[in-house]
């Protein structure tokens, strides 16, 4: 009797141990994917999700970077203030002009560049690289270089204008031309990226559609309007959104080239936020303006995903 009892007991114990082992291994398997995502997620939480929430919180407070412990709840006062502030109105208007100017000019130019440069010969490949090259250069260099080119007295651009008999232009020095000059620089830097993406879009259009169109005797313009443009519309939409988002946050060129001037004529959202927060210590105003910017970009992001989803469904 006794020995059987013993073995029974020991086998019971054994079973318990294996059960424990089993549940432990099951547990590690369940937790494993979360553990792998955890580090990345931790960074996102610390430097993305939490700051977004915190920023909204900050926008309801009166505070400054000078003394973070003295925060005062003010409700919507910050938003009211910027809504009534004529400087902020100007900033928003500037941002809108700059954004639409940059995006429209850049997209139109790059569309035609893409149509032109989308060819096999080597020279076109070199041209694509040349057009793209400003995109990977630091905005610091781009800004300083163009500041120098646009120097009203000694700059190369005015020398060229003069050479062809045109009057010198004021470029960054005048309220009437500074914003346009910034748009010009941004177009120069960004058009290459758009061109390359357009070319990728063009190349993904099946060749047989064009062959069918030519059999149907469609003219060049007609083919462009009825085939190329519609087939390119997802690319166009993507580029529009991406360009809008990046234009909304223009800062480096302003900071280096104009400091928002002359007379606030190039003051735009991120620069305004920077000045209010870092220079004028109006933390509340700065965070309220940031929330406005975040809202704008949020809408763009939503549109982007919404469109991407639809595209997937229709395919």
């Amino acid at each position: 009797m006794q020995p059987t009892m013993g073995t029974q007991q020991s086998s019971l114990v054994k079973e318990k141990v294996t059960m424990k082992k089993r549940s432990l291994s099951r547990w590690t398997e369940t937790v494993r994917p979360y553990a792998y995502i955890m580090p990345a997620l931790l960074f996102f939480c610390l430097f993305f999700f939490f700051p977004i929430g915190y920023m909204i919180y900050l926008s309801f407070h009166d505070w400054s970077l000078l003394d973070l412990s003295a925060m005062e709840w003010v409700g919507l006062a910050n938003f009211q203030e910027i809504m009534l502030d004529s400087d902020f109105h100007l900033v928003v208007i500037n941002t809108i002009i700059y954004t639409f100017g940059t995006v429209a000019i850049s997209l139109v130019l790059s569309f035609f560049l893409a149509l032109w440069l989308n060819r096999q010969a080597k020279i076109y490949g070199i041209m694509q690289a040349a057009v793209f090259s400003p995109h990977i250069i630091s905005l610091v260099s781009v800004s300083m270089l163009w500041m120098w080119l646009m120097d009203p007295q000694y700059g190369l651009l005015n020398a060229i204008l003069e050479f062809f008999g045109f009057p010198a232009y004021t470029w960054l020095a005048d309220t009437s031309s500074a914003l346009l000059s910034l748009i010009l620089v941004s177009v120069w830097k960004g058009v290459g990226y758009n061109t390359i993406v357009f070319i990728a879009g063009l190349q993904s259009i099946p060749k047989d559609i064009y062959e069918a169109a030519s059999l149907d005797r469609a003219g060049k313009l007609r083919t462009l309007a009825k085939i190329t443009l519609p087939m390119l519309s997802p690319t166009l939409f993507f580029l529009t959104i991406i360009n809008l988002i990046s234009s909304f946050q223009v800062f480096d060129t302003i900071y280096i080239m104009t400091q928002g001037g002359p007379v606030n004529s190039t003051n735009m959202l991120v620069f305004y936020i920077y000045e209010q927060g870092m220079d004028f210590y109006n933390g509340g105003i700065a965070s309220a303006a940031s929330v406005v910017l975040l809202g704008l970009i949020g809408v763009m992001t939503f549109l982007h995903f919404w469109f991407a989803e639809r595209r997937v469904h229709y395919r």
Binding site: F44, F48, M55, L58, G277, S287, S290
Partner: peptide
């Protein structure tokens, strides 16, 4: 999806709270 959102929103927009952090 959260990761994708982080892909779209640039850090320039939220520099202020990160600076405070």
């Amino acid at each position: 999806a959260l990761t994708l959102i982080a892909l779209m929103i640039p850090p320039q927009v939220i520099f202020l709270p990160i600076y405070v952090e």
